[in-house]
Amino acid sequence: MHIKDREFIRGKVPMTKEEIRAISIAKLNLQENSVLIDVGAGTGSVGIEGATYLKKGFVYGIEKNRDGIELIEENLEKFQIKNYKLIFGVAPKDLKEIEKNSFDKMFIGGSSGNMEEIIDFFIEYSKPESDFVINIIALESLGNTLEIIKRKNLKDIEIVNIGVSRDKKIGNYTMMMGENPIYIISGRK
Rank of each mutant, 00 (worst) to 15 (best):
A91T: 04
L146T: 05
M175S: 11
E74S: 12
I170D: 02
K64W: 08
E18T: 06
G57H: 07
G89P: 02
M176F: 10
R166I: 09
I108P: 03
E129V: 03
F103S: 13
I69A: 10
F88R: 05
Y183R: 07
D67H: 12
I123G: 05
S24I: 01
A51I: 01
E77Q: 15
I137D: 12
G171A: 00
I149F: 03
E74A: 15
M176C: 06
G57S: 11
S45Y: 01
F103R: 14
L76Y: 09
L86A: 10
N161A: 08
I159M: 06
N153L: 14
L30W: 03
F79S: 12
T43M: 11
E70M: 11
E117N: 13
I108Q: 08
V35G: 06
E129D: 07
R188P: 02
I159G: 02
A26K: 10
V90K: 14
V59C: 14
G57M: 09
S141V: 08
I123Q: 13
I9E: 13
Y125H: 13
T16Y: 02
F58C: 04
V46D: 01
K64H: 11
A41C: 09
Q80F: 14
E179G: 02
G89Q: 10
A22V: 13
F107I: 00
K55P: 00
G109H: 03
G163C: 08
A138Q: 14
L71I: 07
K55D: 01
K85D: 04
G163E: 12
I159T: 05
K27R: 13
K64Y: 10
M1Y: 06
D94I: 07
E124F: 14
I182T: 08
K96V: 12
V13T: 09
G40A: 10
A51N: 02
A41L: 08
I81E: 08
L76F: 06
I108F: 09
P128D: 11
N75E: 15
M175W: 11
E179F: 13
D38N: 07
I119P: 03
S111Y: 03
A91N: 05
A41W: 01
F79M: 07
S111V: 01
E140N: 13
I136E: 09
G40E: 13
V35A: 12
G163M: 12
I69C: 06
R21N: 11
Y60K: 04
S112Y: 10
G44Q: 13
E158A: 07
G11E: 06
I119E: 12
G50P: 03
T145Y: 03
I98F: 00
I170F: 02
I134N: 05
I3G: 03
